[in-house]
Design a protein around this nucleic acid. Structure first.
Length: 117
RNA sequence: UGAGAUGGCCAGACAAUCGCACUAAUUCUUUUAGUGAGGAAAGUCCGGGCUCCACAGGGUAAGGUGCCAGGUAACACCUGGGGGACGUGAGUCCACGGCAAGUGCAACAGAAAGGAUACCGCCCAGCAUCUAGAAUGCAGGGUAAGGGUGAAAUGGUGCGGUAAGAGCGCACCGCGCGGCUGGCAACAGCAACGGCAAGGUAAACCCCACCUGGAGCAAGACCAAAUAGGGGAACACAUGCUUUUAAAGCAUGGCAUGCGGCCCGCAUGGUUCCCGGGUAGGUUGCUUGAGGCAGAUGGUGACAUCUGUCCCAGAUGAAUGAUUGUCCACGACAGAACCCGGCUUAUGGCCAUCUCAACUU
Protein backbone atom coordinates (compact mmCIF):
# COMPACT_ATOMS: atom_id res chain seq x y z
CA UNK A 1 0.00 0.00 0.00
CA UNK A 2 1.72 3.12 -1.23
CA UNK A 3 0.43 6.18 0.48
CA UNK A 4 1.59 9.73 0.75
CA UNK A 5 0.88 11.05 4.19
CA UNK A 6 1.38 14.42 5.72
CA UNK A 7 4.43 13.23 7.59
CA UNK A 8 6.14 12.51 4.29
CA UNK A 9 6.18 16.17 3.43
CA UNK A 10 8.93 18.46 4.45
CA UNK A 11 7.36 21.66 5.64
CA UNK A 12 9.88 23.26 7.99
CA UNK A 13 12.33 25.85 6.74
CA UNK A 14 15.01 24.17 8.89
CA UNK A 15 14.67 20.86 7.07
CA UNK A 16 15.09 22.60 3.74
CA UNK A 17 18.24 24.46 4.70
CA UNK A 18 19.76 21.27 6.13
CA UNK A 19 19.22 19.43 2.84
CA UNK A 20 20.43 22.39 0.77
CA UNK A 21 23.67 22.62 2.76
CA UNK A 22 24.60 18.93 3.13
CA UNK A 23 22.69 17.06 0.45
CA UNK A 24 23.99 15.57 -2.77
CA UNK A 25 22.81 17.24 -5.98
CA UNK A 26 22.10 15.86 -9.42
CA UNK A 27 19.60 16.60 -12.12
CA UNK A 28 18.35 16.59 -15.67
CA UNK A 29 15.13 16.69 -17.59
CA UNK A 30 14.13 20.05 -16.22
CA UNK A 31 14.61 19.10 -12.55
CA UNK A 32 17.27 19.18 -9.85
CA UNK A 33 17.26 16.64 -7.01
CA UNK A 34 18.95 17.15 -3.64
CA UNK A 35 19.04 14.15 -1.33
CA UNK A 36 20.23 13.61 2.22
CA UNK A 37 19.71 10.69 4.63
CA UNK A 38 17.64 11.48 7.69
CA UNK A 39 16.76 9.84 11.00
CA UNK A 40 13.01 10.00 10.55
CA UNK A 41 12.65 6.40 9.41
CA UNK A 42 10.80 7.06 6.16
CA UNK A 43 11.41 9.13 3.03
CA UNK A 44 10.28 12.72 2.94
CA UNK A 45 9.67 14.97 -0.06
CA UNK A 46 10.10 18.69 -0.39
CA UNK A 47 9.06 20.71 -3.42
CA UNK A 48 10.43 24.01 -4.68
CA UNK A 49 8.88 24.99 -7.98
CA UNK A 50 9.91 28.50 -8.94
CA UNK A 51 7.31 30.97 -10.11
CA UNK A 52 9.96 32.20 -12.52
CA UNK A 53 10.10 28.85 -14.30
CA UNK A 54 6.35 28.09 -14.41
CA UNK A 55 4.43 31.32 -14.59
CA UNK A 56 0.84 30.16 -14.12
CA UNK A 57 -0.45 28.77 -10.83
CA UNK A 58 -2.27 25.92 -12.55
CA UNK A 59 0.97 24.82 -14.23
CA UNK A 60 2.82 24.82 -10.92
CA UNK A 61 0.06 22.82 -9.24
CA UNK A 62 0.14 20.28 -12.02
CA UNK A 63 3.92 19.88 -11.74
CA UNK A 64 3.74 19.34 -7.98
CA UNK A 65 1.05 16.70 -8.43
CA UNK A 66 3.13 14.85 -10.99
CA UNK A 67 6.16 14.79 -8.70
CA UNK A 68 4.15 13.70 -5.66
CA UNK A 69 2.49 10.90 -7.60
CA UNK A 70 5.80 9.58 -8.86
CA UNK A 71 7.31 9.84 -5.36
CA UNK A 72 4.35 7.94 -3.93
CA UNK A 73 4.84 5.07 -6.35
CA UNK A 74 8.57 4.77 -5.77
CA UNK A 75 8.81 5.49 -2.06
CA UNK A 76 9.33 1.82 -1.14
CA UNK A 77 12.80 1.82 -2.70
CA UNK A 78 13.82 5.04 -0.96
CA UNK A 79 14.63 4.55 2.67
CA UNK A 80 14.97 7.23 5.25
CA UNK A 81 15.93 10.01 2.85
CA UNK A 82 15.03 13.69 2.67
CA UNK A 83 14.61 14.66 -0.97
CA UNK A 84 14.08 18.16 -2.35
CA UNK A 85 12.97 18.57 -5.95
CA UNK A 86 13.76 21.89 -7.62
CA UNK A 87 12.58 23.23 -10.95
CA UNK A 88 14.92 24.40 -13.69
CA UNK A 89 14.33 27.06 -16.35
CA UNK A 90 13.78 24.47 -19.11
CA UNK A 91 10.98 22.70 -17.22
CA UNK A 92 8.25 24.49 -19.18
CA UNK A 93 9.35 22.72 -22.39
CA UNK A 94 8.94 19.19 -20.96
CA UNK A 95 5.73 17.22 -21.30
CA UNK A 96 4.18 14.83 -18.80
CA UNK A 97 5.91 11.68 -20.04
CA UNK A 98 9.37 13.30 -20.11
CA UNK A 99 8.95 14.50 -16.53
CA UNK A 100 7.83 11.10 -15.35
CA UNK A 101 10.70 9.17 -16.92
CA UNK A 102 13.20 11.72 -15.63
CA UNK A 103 11.84 11.33 -12.10
CA UNK A 104 12.07 7.52 -12.28
CA UNK A 105 15.70 7.81 -13.33
CA UNK A 106 16.41 10.19 -10.47
CA UNK A 107 14.88 7.96 -7.83
CA UNK A 108 17.14 5.15 -9.04
CA UNK A 109 20.18 7.42 -8.84
CA UNK A 110 19.31 8.36 -5.28
CA UNK A 111 19.19 4.70 -4.26
CA UNK A 112 22.45 3.66 -5.95
CA UNK A 113 24.32 6.77 -4.83
CA UNK A 114 23.46 6.14 -1.24
CA UNK A 115 24.24 2.44 -1.36
CA UNK A 116 27.71 3.14 -2.78
CA UNK A 117 28.72 5.67 -0.17
C1' U B 1 -26.56 30.63 -47.68
C1' G B 2 -23.40 34.82 -46.35
C1' A B 3 -22.44 39.19 -43.27
C1' G B 4 -23.82 41.19 -38.68
C1' A B 5 -26.71 42.63 -33.73
C1' U B 6 -28.60 41.14 -28.92
C1' G B 7 -29.59 37.67 -25.01
C1' G B 8 -28.95 32.97 -22.64
C1' C B 9 -26.63 28.04 -21.62
C1' C B 10 -22.44 24.31 -21.16
C1' A B 11 -17.36 23.93 -19.55
C1' G B 12 -15.97 16.32 -22.35
C1' A B 13 -19.07 11.94 -20.51
C1' C B 14 -19.20 6.98 -18.22
C1' A B 15 -16.77 2.78 -15.66
C1' A B 16 -12.68 0.35 -12.89
C1' U B 17 -8.12 0.48 -9.81
C1' C B 18 -4.56 3.33 -6.83
C1' G B 19 -3.96 8.08 -4.08
C1' C B 20 -4.96 13.32 -1.49
C1' A B 21 -8.05 17.13 1.87
C1' C B 22 -12.24 17.88 5.01
C1' U B 23 -16.69 16.13 7.54
C1' A B 24 -19.64 12.23 9.83
C1' A B 25 -20.03 7.43 11.75
C1' U B 26 -17.26 3.33 13.42
C1' U B 27 -14.09 2.85 16.98
C1' C B 28 -8.90 3.43 19.53
C1' U B 29 -6.36 3.27 14.88
C1' U B 30 -8.22 1.42 11.32
C1' U B 31 -12.29 1.00 8.06
C1' U B 32 -16.85 2.86 5.68
C1' A B 33 -19.75 6.78 3.64
C1' G B 34 -20.39 11.76 1.87
C1' U B 35 -18.32 16.17 -0.26
C1' G B 36 -14.25 18.56 -2.90
C1' A B 37 -12.19 25.05 -7.66
C1' G B 38 -14.13 29.13 -11.76
C1' G B 39 -17.07 31.75 -15.37
C1' A B 40 -13.70 34.24 -15.24
C1' A B 41 -11.18 31.35 -9.14
C1' A B 42 -7.33 36.24 -12.87
C1' G B 43 -6.24 41.89 -12.92
C1' U B 44 -6.77 44.00 -7.72
C1' C B 45 -9.87 48.80 -10.77
C1' C B 46 -14.44 50.36 -7.77
C1' G B 47 -18.34 49.36 -3.83
C1' G B 48 -19.81 46.95 0.82
C1' G B 49 -19.72 43.33 5.11
C1' C B 50 -16.24 41.86 9.03
C1' U B 51 -11.88 43.22 12.40
C1' C B 52 -8.57 46.65 14.91
C1' C B 53 -7.24 51.86 15.62
C1' A B 54 -9.05 57.00 15.69
C1' C B 55 -13.46 60.01 16.45
C1' A B 56 -18.12 66.27 20.24
C1' G B 57 -19.46 69.51 16.23
C1' G B 58 -18.07 72.61 12.13
C1' G B 59 -14.58 74.34 8.46
C1' U B 60 -10.31 73.63 5.30
C1' A B 61 -7.15 70.38 2.52
C1' A B 62 -6.85 65.92 -0.58
C1' G B 63 -9.34 62.41 -3.62
C1' G B 64 -13.66 60.84 -6.22
C1' U B 65 -18.43 61.38 -8.77
C1' G B 66 -21.08 64.66 -12.52
C1' C B 67 -28.28 64.51 -18.00
C1' C B 68 -32.98 62.62 -15.13
C1' A B 69 -35.78 58.96 -12.35
C1' G B 70 -35.60 54.32 -10.07
C1' G B 71 -33.04 49.62 -8.04
C1' U B 72 -29.52 48.26 -4.22
C1' A B 73 -26.18 47.09 1.89
C1' A B 74 -23.38 50.21 -1.43
C1' C B 75 -21.09 51.70 -6.03
C1' A B 76 -17.74 54.53 -10.80
C1' C B 77 -22.69 48.96 -11.16
C1' C B 78 -27.71 47.71 -13.08
C1' U B 79 -32.75 49.12 -15.13
C1' G B 80 -35.97 52.60 -17.57
C1' G B 81 -36.13 57.44 -19.80
C1' G B 82 -34.01 62.19 -22.21
C1' G B 83 -30.17 64.47 -25.38
C1' G B 84 -26.01 63.95 -28.83
C1' A B 85 -22.89 60.93 -32.27
C1' C B 86 -22.32 56.54 -35.60
C1' G B 87 -24.71 52.73 -38.71
C1' U B 88 -28.94 51.11 -44.82
C1' G B 89 -30.71 48.39 -40.42
C1' A B 90 -31.11 45.15 -35.92
C1' G B 91 -28.53 48.21 -32.73
C1' U B 92 -24.06 50.47 -30.59
C1' C B 93 -21.18 54.40 -28.21
C1' C B 94 -20.90 59.01 -24.89
C1' A B 95 -16.62 62.14 -17.96
C1' C B 96 -23.54 64.23 -20.96
C1' G B 97 -22.84 70.41 -14.87
C1' G B 98 -20.50 75.51 -15.66
C1' C B 99 -15.95 79.11 -20.45
C1' A B 100 -22.66 85.52 -19.22
C1' A B 101 -16.77 84.70 -12.16
C1' G B 102 -11.43 84.84 -12.91
C1' U B 103 -6.63 82.91 -14.99
C1' G B 104 -4.42 80.27 -18.97
C1' C B 105 -3.72 77.77 -23.95
C1' A B 106 -3.84 77.54 -29.74
C1' A B 107 1.96 75.90 -34.61
C1' C B 108 1.65 77.99 -39.43
C1' A B 109 -0.95 81.11 -42.64
C1' G B 110 -3.43 85.75 -42.89
C1' A B 111 -4.66 92.78 -43.64
C1' A B 112 -6.97 91.36 -39.21
C1' A B 113 -7.70 85.95 -34.02
C1' G B 114 -11.13 88.68 -29.46
C1' G B 115 -15.91 94.49 -28.46
C1' A B 116 -10.25 92.21 -34.09
C1' U B 117 -9.53 93.72 -39.20
C1' A B 118 -9.54 97.29 -45.21
C1' C B 119 -4.55 93.24 -48.48
C1' C B 120 -6.93 92.63 -53.40
C1' G B 121 -11.66 94.50 -54.46
C1' C B 122 -16.57 97.50 -54.81
C1' C B 123 -18.69 102.63 -54.37
C1' C B 124 -18.59 108.17 -53.71
C1' A B 125 -16.99 112.89 -54.37
C1' G B 126 -11.85 116.02 -54.89
C1' C B 127 -7.13 117.35 -57.40
C1' A B 128 -3.49 116.49 -61.35
C1' U B 129 -2.20 114.44 -66.34
C1' C B 130 -3.57 113.70 -71.71
C1' U B 131 -4.64 109.48 -75.09
C1' A B 132 -10.44 113.15 -73.05
C1' G B 133 -12.27 107.67 -71.28
C1' A B 134 -16.42 102.61 -68.18
C1' A B 135 -8.61 106.17 -68.56
C1' U B 136 -4.25 106.66 -65.29
C1' G B 137 -2.00 108.61 -60.83
C1' C B 138 -2.31 111.04 -55.89
C1' A B 139 -4.55 111.97 -51.24
C1' G B 140 -9.75 111.42 -48.48
C1' G B 141 -14.23 108.89 -47.16
C1' G B 142 -17.95 104.74 -47.28
C1' U B 143 -18.32 99.26 -47.35
C1' A B 144 -17.93 93.54 -45.12
C1' A B 145 -21.41 91.62 -50.84
C1' G B 146 -16.98 88.99 -53.89
C1' G B 147 -11.49 87.12 -53.68
C1' G B 148 -7.54 85.33 -50.76
C1' U B 149 -5.58 82.95 -45.50
C1' G B 150 -7.05 79.69 -41.71
C1' A B 151 -9.53 74.53 -37.65
C1' A B 152 -12.26 79.10 -36.81
C1' A B 153 -13.30 85.72 -39.80
C1' U B 154 -19.08 88.36 -35.57
C1' G B 155 -25.59 83.77 -37.72
C1' G B 156 -27.44 80.90 -42.89
C1' U B 157 -30.58 81.13 -47.59
C1' G B 158 -33.68 84.16 -50.56
C1' C B 159 -36.15 88.77 -51.66
C1' G B 160 -36.30 93.92 -50.94
C1' G B 161 -33.11 97.97 -50.34
C1' U B 162 -28.62 101.03 -51.57
C1' A B 163 -23.81 105.17 -54.64
C1' A B 164 -21.83 100.41 -53.20
C1' G B 165 -23.18 97.62 -49.13
C1' A B 166 -24.81 96.01 -44.41
C1' G B 167 -30.46 92.34 -39.80
C1' C B 168 -30.90 98.24 -42.72
C1' G B 169 -36.13 95.82 -43.57
C1' C B 170 -39.04 91.20 -44.50
C1' A B 171 -39.86 85.54 -44.95
C1' C B 172 -38.06 80.73 -43.49
C1' C B 173 -34.21 78.17 -40.61
C1' G B 174 -30.86 78.72 -36.40
C1' C B 175 -29.91 81.40 -31.61
C1' G B 176 -31.42 83.99 -27.06
C1' C B 177 -35.24 85.39 -23.61
C1' G B 178 -39.41 85.07 -20.57
C1' G B 179 -44.38 82.46 -21.04
C1' C B 180 -47.94 78.41 -21.90
C1' U B 181 -48.86 73.02 -22.53
C1' G B 182 -47.19 67.76 -21.57
C1' G B 183 -43.88 65.05 -18.19
C1' C B 184 -42.08 63.29 -10.99
C1' A B 185 -37.76 65.02 -13.77
C1' A B 186 -33.98 65.31 -17.61
C1' C B 187 -36.48 67.30 -21.63
C1' A B 188 -40.00 68.03 -25.62
C1' G B 189 -43.78 70.87 -28.20
C1' C B 190 -46.33 75.58 -29.16
C1' A B 191 -47.31 80.58 -30.36
C1' A B 192 -45.04 85.39 -29.16
C1' C B 193 -40.94 88.75 -28.40
C1' G B 194 -35.61 90.32 -29.37
C1' G B 195 -32.32 91.87 -35.01
C1' C B 196 -28.66 88.47 -33.07
C1' A B 197 -25.82 88.89 -28.24
C1' A B 198 -17.16 88.81 -28.64
C1' G B 199 -16.02 81.69 -30.73
C1' G B 200 -13.20 76.85 -28.91
C1' U B 201 -10.82 74.28 -24.83
C1' A B 202 -12.83 72.62 -17.90
C1' A B 203 -9.86 63.73 -18.91
C1' A B 204 -6.36 73.10 -18.51
C1' C B 205 -6.22 75.55 -13.54
C1' C B 206 -10.73 76.67 -11.61
C1' C B 207 -16.20 77.34 -9.98
C1' C B 208 -20.78 74.69 -8.43
C1' A B 209 -23.42 70.34 -6.32
C1' C B 210 -22.91 65.63 -3.94
C1' C B 211 -19.80 61.63 -1.59
C1' U B 212 -15.43 59.88 1.28
C1' G B 213 -11.74 58.84 8.78
C1' G B 214 -7.27 55.16 8.47
C1' A B 215 -5.43 50.28 7.91
C1' G B 216 -6.28 45.40 6.42
C1' C B 217 -7.47 38.09 7.63
C1' A B 218 0.19 38.62 7.44
C1' A B 219 -6.92 42.25 10.19
C1' G B 220 -7.93 40.57 15.00
C1' A B 221 -8.53 36.92 19.34
C1' C B 222 -6.47 32.81 22.29
C1' C B 223 -2.78 28.95 24.04
C1' A B 224 2.35 28.92 24.61
C1' A B 225 8.02 25.58 24.90
C1' A B 226 13.48 26.69 25.03
C1' U B 227 17.04 30.68 25.89
C1' A B 228 18.20 35.55 27.68
C1' G B 229 16.37 39.48 30.40
C1' G B 230 12.38 42.26 33.90
C1' G B 231 9.28 42.28 38.59
C1' G B 232 7.92 39.78 43.19
C1' A B 233 7.87 36.06 47.19
C1' A B 234 9.96 32.23 50.12
C1' C B 235 14.20 29.55 51.74
C1' A B 236 19.34 29.54 52.72
C1' C B 237 24.06 32.98 54.94
C1' A B 238 26.69 36.33 58.62
C1' U B 239 26.56 39.76 62.80
C1' G B 240 24.10 42.34 66.79
C1' C B 241 19.90 43.00 70.14
C1' U B 242 15.42 41.17 72.77
C1' U B 243 12.66 37.18 74.78
C1' U B 244 13.54 32.07 75.56
C1' U B 245 13.79 25.09 77.37
C1' A B 246 13.98 24.40 72.08
C1' A B 247 13.44 28.47 69.10
C1' A B 248 11.29 32.93 67.45
C1' G B 249 11.15 38.21 66.38
C1' C B 250 13.56 42.76 64.95
C1' A B 251 17.65 45.44 62.82
C1' U B 252 21.95 45.60 59.71
C1' G B 253 24.22 43.70 54.89
C1' G B 254 27.01 41.16 54.65
C1' C B 255 28.68 36.76 52.14
C1' A B 256 30.74 33.43 48.32
C1' U B 257 33.81 32.85 43.86
C1' G B 258 37.69 34.86 40.44
C1' C B 259 42.04 38.47 39.75
C1' G B 260 45.76 39.50 43.89
C1' G B 261 50.93 37.61 48.81
C1' C B 262 47.30 40.68 51.88
C1' C B 263 44.14 45.19 52.42
C1' C B 264 41.73 48.48 49.17
C1' G B 265 39.67 47.82 44.51
C1' C B 266 37.38 45.47 40.14
C1' A B 267 34.24 41.58 38.00
C1' U B 268 30.61 37.73 38.66
C1' G B 269 26.38 35.84 41.71
C1' G B 270 22.71 30.59 45.38
C1' U B 271 17.99 27.42 45.40
C1' U B 272 12.70 27.07 44.66
C1' C B 273 8.19 29.15 43.20
C1' C B 274 5.00 32.88 41.15
C1' C B 275 3.76 37.11 37.85
C1' G B 276 3.57 39.87 33.39
C1' G B 277 5.39 40.78 28.32
C1' G B 278 6.17 37.39 24.47
C1' U B 279 9.60 34.38 20.13
C1' A B 280 9.46 29.36 17.62
C1' G B 281 5.15 26.64 17.15
C1' G B 282 -0.10 25.76 17.58
C1' U B 283 -5.53 26.98 17.86
C1' U B 284 -9.15 30.33 16.15
C1' G B 285 -10.99 33.91 12.66
C1' C B 286 -12.95 29.91 8.40
C1' U B 287 -17.39 29.47 6.04
C1' U B 288 -25.17 29.47 6.69
C1' G B 289 -24.46 33.52 3.17
C1' A B 290 -27.16 40.92 1.04
C1' G B 291 -26.88 31.94 -0.10
C1' G B 292 -28.77 28.52 -4.10
C1' C B 293 -33.17 26.19 -6.49
C1' A B 294 -38.63 26.06 -7.53
C1' G B 295 -43.28 28.57 -7.43
C1' A B 296 -46.65 32.74 -6.56
C1' U B 297 -47.53 38.08 -6.33
C1' G B 298 -46.20 43.41 -7.55
C1' G B 299 -43.36 46.21 -11.27
C1' U B 300 -42.18 48.15 -18.54
C1' G B 301 -37.59 46.62 -16.05
C1' A B 302 -33.36 46.39 -12.61
C1' C B 303 -35.56 44.31 -8.41
C1' A B 304 -38.71 43.42 -4.13
C1' U B 305 -42.05 40.44 -0.98
C1' C B 306 -44.02 35.70 0.43
C1' U B 307 -44.11 30.20 0.52
C1' G B 308 -41.56 25.62 0.02
C1' U B 309 -36.99 23.19 -0.29
C1' C B 310 -31.49 22.36 -0.11
C1' C B 311 -26.55 22.74 2.77
C1' C B 312 -22.96 23.18 -1.77
C1' A B 313 -14.38 23.46 -0.96
C1' G B 314 -12.14 25.33 3.45
C1' A B 315 -6.30 23.91 2.22
C1' U B 316 -2.08 26.63 5.13
C1' G B 317 5.54 24.29 1.93
C1' A B 318 -1.06 24.89 0.64
C1' A B 319 -6.04 19.05 -0.95
C1' U B 320 -9.13 17.64 -7.03
C1' G B 321 -4.35 13.69 -9.34
C1' A B 322 -2.45 9.07 -11.92
C1' U B 323 -3.34 4.67 -14.90
C1' U B 324 -6.61 1.76 -18.09
C1' G B 325 -10.97 1.03 -21.20
C1' U B 326 -15.31 2.85 -24.23
C1' C B 327 -17.72 6.95 -26.90
C1' C B 328 -17.90 11.83 -29.24
C1' A B 329 -18.02 17.36 -31.78
C1' C B 330 -11.07 15.07 -29.65
C1' G B 331 -11.73 19.17 -24.88
C1' A B 332 -9.99 26.63 -24.91
C1' C B 333 -8.73 30.24 -21.07
C1' A B 334 -7.13 28.71 -16.71
C1' G B 335 -6.49 26.84 -9.86
C1' A B 336 -10.27 29.06 -4.22
C1' A B 337 -6.81 31.42 0.24
C1' C B 338 -11.91 36.13 5.03
C1' C B 339 -16.66 36.71 2.38
C1' C B 340 -20.08 39.10 -1.03
C1' G B 341 -21.88 42.89 -5.37
C1' G B 342 -19.80 44.89 -9.88
C1' C B 343 -16.24 46.36 -13.74
C1' U B 344 -12.20 44.93 -16.98
C1' U B 345 -9.22 41.40 -19.41
C1' A B 346 -8.26 35.92 -21.38
C1' U B 347 -11.03 31.99 -23.80
C1' G B 348 -13.60 26.72 -26.61
C1' G B 349 -18.46 25.56 -28.11
C1' C B 350 -23.98 25.46 -28.46
C1' C B 351 -28.91 27.63 -28.75
C1' A B 352 -32.74 31.40 -29.41
C1' U B 353 -34.51 36.07 -31.30
C1' C B 354 -33.65 40.07 -34.60
C1' U B 355 -31.31 42.99 -39.00
C1' C B 356 -29.21 43.47 -43.99
C1' A B 357 -27.95 41.21 -48.77
C1' A B 358 -28.43 37.41 -52.40
C1' C B 359 -30.75 32.91 -54.11
C1' U B 360 -34.65 28.99 -54.47
C1' U B 361 -39.88 27.57 -54.25
Amino acid sequence: MAKFRRAMRMNRPGDFTRVFRQGKRFGGGGLTIIALPSSVGHPRLGLAIAKKHLKLASQRNRMKRLIRESFRQHQASLDSMDIVVLSRPDISQRDTIQIRTALERHWLTVVTQWQNS
